[in-house]
Design a protein around this nucleic acid. Structure first.
Lengths: 189, 189
DNA sequence: GTCTATATATAGATAGAC
DNA sequence: GTCTATCTATATATAGAC
């Protein structure tokens, strides 16, 4: 484990609090108390509460964007690409399930450029997903159900993993990946 | 359409704002502006901001609880019961998709008894769902995948409908029900 | 890197006039 | 049923000492 910088510690502590109560309901005093310091001291490491939120969300969104771009440009069939997307979500969830709460529920509190940047990444991500499913249907790999419903159903499950996985005991990541692929795909494929 | 009381108007306006920004980020002044009155005037109809939140959430949670109790006590097989649960979620989503945002994201801001009451209803709801799936597996109706993953996957999709359905154009409720049952069940059953 | 003290803004809510 | 005026608490953030 590489040592965390003080800024990283603050961001991790904030991720946990934001997950529990949401960005708006967490005060800088709450965050300082969780760190064992006073609120004013936080500002020696970060510029604003907003900077904490945007760091959490944008870093994660870029991680998903980067992962999706690799999958899209790979030379695999649709089914395999969807399996890779499931793996991506599980990997990110294992690494930072707290931060995913902010990405899912507090993105609307981003400001200006970061809000637009986030919304573009999310839109592109969904569009990439949709195109993979469409191509799978065209090539007879995936059942010809309503495309939007299949995309929504799969994505909503993957996006909610952060709420569910930390509560599960004794589920190994590889077993989870295998079983999640079964549940999400065996009905579609 | 029966005429709305002023209190119901406030609650509906609040549901929309809470959906957009979350309970904590919406001020009584925001709500008053949406109603075209001053913040102080709201208090002639409601006791507190907290009362608005608890009304939105508890009413919806009781609706789900009541619906689930009917399904549980009905004389049907597991597959049919799950279809009825899907119908229940779609019906509630059509009737009050705004309020479902609070139920999903702002329940932790409930106070005291209402928080406990809500958490018990949510727990019982999940337990009922889990038992239906278990029985379906035992009787060979449902594929023997990991129970928790099937329950989580289905519920996470149904709980997120409120975000997705309002954005869909030209999807009739009955068609949605049919297609959603296909996507969620044909892989499991 | 953390502290105390504080500036400034805004939150939920109440009192009392109309 | 709505208003203006206001109370009290608390929010984010800064200044400057240690």
């Amino acid at each position: 484990m590489k040592p965390e910088s003080r800024k990283e510690e603050i961001i991790n502590a904030a991720s946990i609090l934001f997950k529990e109560k949401g960005y708006s309901a967490v005060t800088m005093r709450d965050l300082a108390k969780a760190m064992g310091i006073k609120a004013a001291s936080l500002y020696n490491h970060i510029q604003s509460k907003q900077e904490i939120l945007s760091t959490i969300i944008i870093d994660l969104a870029e991680e998903f964007t980067s992962g999706m771009n690799q999958i899209v440009s790979s030379d695999k069939n649709a089914t395999k690409k969807i399996e890779n997307i499931i793996d991506l979500h599980i990997d990110v969830t294992l690494r930072n399930s707290d931060g995913l709460a902010s990405l899912n529920n507090d993105w609307m509190h981003l400001e200006e450029e970061n809000l637009q940047y986030f919304e573009k990444m999310r839109h592109d991500y969904e569009e990439n997903f949709r195109n993979i499913v469409k191509k799978g249907v065209d090539q007879g790999e995936i059942k010809p159900f309503n495309i939007e419903i299949m995309v929504f159903s799969t994505l909503s499950t993957l996006r909610t993993l952060y709420l569910w996985y930390p509560k599960q005991r004794n589920i190994d990541a590889d077993i989870l990946k295998h079983d999640m692929i079964s549940v999400l795909l065996k009905g579609i494929v």
